[in-house]
């Protein structure tokens, strides 16, 4: 049995309590929600927090998935399984269901959380690319109040975010705009594996023209999990196979994959193009009301 290094454990009873505990315990404390990334890293002693603040009792406040005016709001403590099962999330952004179907396995999805995934900031994390594609905003709360950060600005590097040690992610907000469709495409060596590469796309069409587009990439070294150059190349272009392939090529050009046992650089770059193209194709079909 792998066992973590010694640590202390606190259980938060409210958001305020959690933030206060984080303040008291200092920068070596970590929030634990689903724990499906943090605990394995602790057992391998790759992560050695001095204290854990357990927020699992805050579900009432932090786990709702709902529409608020023109925003889809997803609580940070929503489980992957909740998001997968959420009709309202699927109605507005099919990309969430596409992605959640291929995140880990049912056991992990039952407990792992949306906020935990984003805060873990694993460079191969799926939801970071999904929220980059739909241009979601994270709502963070610290001792001095609440602030909003675009998910595209949340990550500053592998396993690093802009969150202060005593800040807690409360929810994610995604603007709902008409004429949109979204999709997620992933290649993995086996179900439940981290992606070899994955791409998410959200498009908004004016007739046959791409009015707005978001492209998220993961596991290929794309800065902030996004492909802004490919988005710029596609914005205003006709929503055709040629445009999508061209955008895919631009996305591949601007990402920076590294080789590992999931594949060499050239393959991952190829996948960035291929999967971006496929995601755009499906997203556009969905925007047109077709299921692809």
């Amino acid at each position: 049995m792998q066992v973590p290094a010694p640590f202390t454990y606190e259980r938060a009873t409210s958001v305020e309590h959690a933030i206060a505990l984080l303040g008291q315990l200092g920068p070596e404390a970590r929030v634990v929600a689903g724990g499906h990334s943090l605990i394995p890293m602790m057992k391998l002693r790759l992560a050695r927090p001095e204290a854990l603040v357990d927020i699992n009792d805050l579900g009432g406040e932090l786990s709702q998935i709902r529409v608020d005016a023109d925003m889809l709001v997803i609580g940070a403590l929503a489980r992957h399984a909740d998001l997968l099962a959420s009709a309202v999330a699927g109605e507005h952004f099919k990309i969430f269901h596409d992605a959640e179907k291929v995140i880990a396995d049912p056991v992990v999805r039952n407990f792992g959380t949306v906020g935990g995934s984003l805060c873990q900031a694993d460079p191969a994390e799926d939801l970071s690319a999904v929220f980059a594609a739909v241009d979601g905003v994270a709502v963070l709360r610290g001792p001095d109040g609440v602030r909003q950060v675009r998910v595209r600005e949340l990550h500053v590097g592998p396993y690093e975010t802009v969150l202060e040690p005593d800040e807690l992610m409360l929810e994610l907000r995604v603007p709902i705009r008409p004429g949109g469709g979204s999709a997620y495409e992933k290649v993995e060596r086996r179900v439940g594996d981290y992606p070899v590469a994955a791409a998410g796309a959200a498009v908004w069409l004016d007739g046959d023209t791409v009015r707005e587009v978001g492209i998220g990439l993961t596991a290929v070294g794309a800065e902030h999990f996004a492909a802004p150059e490919a988005e710029a190349a596609l914005r205003g272009q006709p929503a055709t196979e040629e445009s999508f392939q061209a955008a895919g090529r631009v996305a591949a050009e601007h990402c920076n994959p590294s080789a590992d046992q999931r594949g060499p650089v050239d393959y991952k770059r190829h996948l960035a193009a291929e999967l971006t193209t496929r995601a755009l194709r499906r997203a556009a079909a969905r925007a047109r009301g077709q299921e692809a």
Binding site: V196, Q261, G263, H270
Partner: peptide
């Protein structure tokens, strides 16, 4: 025959699967 190994074989440059992928 992982996806990467298959794709590299299709490109005519099969990889050594027992070593670190460079």
């Amino acid at each position: 025959l992982t996806p990467a190994a298959v794709w590299e074989a299709m490109q005519g440059r099969p990889i050594r699967t027992d070593l670190a992928i460079p």
